[in-house]
Simulated assay, not measured.
Amino acid sequence: MIQMLITGLFCGALLGFVMQRGRFCLTGGFRDMYLTKDNRMFYALLIAIAVQSVGVYTLIELGVFEFNAGTLPLLAIIVGSFIFGIGIVLAGGCATGTWYRAGEGLIGSWIALAGYMLMATIMKTGVLVPLNDKISSPQLSTNSIPETLGINVWILIGILVAIVGWIVYKEVTKPKVFIPSLKAKRTGLAHILFEKRWHPFVTAVLVGAIAVLAWPLSVATGRIGGLGITTPSANILQYLTTGDTAFINWGVFLVLGIFIGSFIAAKASREFRFRMPDVKTGINSFVGGNLMGFGASLAGGCSIGNGLVMTAMMTWQGWIALVFMILGTWTAVYFVFVRGRQKNKAMKASVKTA
């Protein structure tokens, strides 16, 4: 228990700190791909995936642990990931983003987190277990991309690294756009950690490195897996309502660590403050949180579990889930932002002509 407490909190705190300071928000990244054609955060995600893939498969080659991709519940992944994508727009953040934004004092994220934990628990051990099992029951025999294609996994990793390297080169060689920054109030390491704007690509490398670190730390406690948010979030509520210590695992301390790390970063950078949402935003946050919990439970992972970890493990589950998360996000963005603006313009026009 002590080992889980220390290493889980440590890894989570690192992740929460880095994500808060680097503003590593996949919801905003997926949204901006559609609204403003800004792909930088998506590129950052690819960097984190590539870093983790190289690191984790190196550990596997060294015999630190073994990984089995298992079977592929294709229907559940498609449906769940699409619903999850819709949910993160309404909630104002993905699963990990909700944890770290809660650490900043954003009450809307606390509301979303409550809905997320509640629905994930209902899906995993509550009345919706039969529905979850039924949708997940059609299984394809293999989930491993290299096994399906009959090639060595390092070929796929090499292709990914090459693509990411080309993207990074193209991005960093673009003409720089001058963005005025606030006058520095701190110097040295304090300025870098708590004041300086972090480049998304630097943040991505750090996130990828932490994702690699999570594997041996988690495996050492008997949990074969890396970063994961949905099941540990449900485990917290399951433990609180049943008192069963079997629900306490390394992942629980990981997600609690994300909250703590984000809180430390937000306080030190003077970004922490309690912010109460209006009624509409609060309702959207709770509904979005429930959709996240439903979708992530069904798909077997969230934007981190599937979008970062299972992609790095070169599974069909990860990459298919990532595609449908993005499609779900774009669908919600269209109806929430694009159609909303169109309605507002139409209403203003009708008022002027009245």
Results as ranks from 00 to 15, higher is better:
290 N>T: 08
294 F>K: 05
216 P>Y: 08
136 S>Q: 09
128 L>V: 10
289 G>M: 11
170 K>H: 09
246 A>P: 00
161 V>K: 03
182 L>P: 00
211 A>Y: 14
51 V>M: 08
275 R>N: 04
272 F>K: 08
159 I>C: 13
217 L>A: 09
55 G>N: 13
339 R>K: 11
330 W>T: 06
223 R>E: 00
285 S>F: 06
193 L>H: 08
1 M>P: 04
78 I>L: 06
242 T>Y: 11
296 A>Y: 01
90 L>C: 10
116 Y>P: 03
34 Y>E: 04
155 I>M: 08
348 K>Q: 06
10 F>R: 10
175 P>Y: 09
163 I>F: 12
166 W>T: 07
86 I>P: 03
10 F>Q: 13
243 G>Y: 07
82 F>C: 03
95 A>P: 04
309 V>L: 06
190 A>Y: 15
45 L>M: 06
217 L>F: 10
195 E>G: 00
190 A>V: 15
62 L>K: 05
125 T>R: 14
17 F>L: 05
263 F>N: 11
303 S>D: 12
243 G>R: 10
6 I>C: 01
243 G>T: 07
82 F>A: 04
227 L>G: 12
208 G>P: 12
177 V>S: 05
37 K>V: 09
211 A>T: 10
87 G>Y: 04
316 W>I: 01
172 V>D: 02
34 Y>F: 05
295 G>D: 00
256 L>P: 02
177 V>E: 13
222 G>I: 00
288 G>D: 10
27 T>M: 13
120 A>Q: 01
354 A>E: 07
281 T>F: 02
268 A>Q: 12
352 K>R: 07
15 L>E: 05
62 L>I: 02
331 T>V: 09
